[in-house]
């Protein structure tokens, strides 16, 4: 199974972080009834864009299998939960709910 973590702009889908394209370390942990994403990423223009657009982010986890369809999980980012620690080079995002979906189940 291949797992991909993505942070995209909700307005039009521009990709800010894509673990399949960038060598980044990320972790997902439980936080209350939601999740906390911790991403080690050096300070950059991309980080500044993420912070500037913190209310317009889509956070995804894609799970791709060889023998079954891709499962996509989209996370609802909590208001005011996007933070960046410059000293540690660490971005954190809290999500309070998620929706799992199989794209092939929707008609085209």
């Amino acid at each position: 199974m291949k797992q991909t973590f993505l942070i995209k702009h909700a307005v039009g889908g521009r990709s800010f972080i894509d673990s399949s394209k960038h060598d980044i370390k990320y972790e997902v942990s439980s936080q209350g009834e939601g999740w906390l994403f911790t991403i080690d990423v050096p300070h950059s223009d991309i980080v500044e864009e993420i912070l500037a657009l913190k209310d317009e982010l889509n956070v995804f986890m894609f799970q791709e299998y060889e023998d079954k369809p891709t499962l996509k999980t989209w996370y609802y980012v909590e208001n005011g939960s996007v933070r960046y620690d410059k000293e540690q080079g660490r971005l954190t995002i809290a999500a309070s709910s998620c929706i799992e979906y199989y794209p092939h189940e929707y008609s085209t």
Partner: peptide, 9 residues
Amino acid sequence: GFGAHPHSD
């Protein structure tokens, strides 16, 4: 068209 994608707020 546009395949399955999310929106919020």
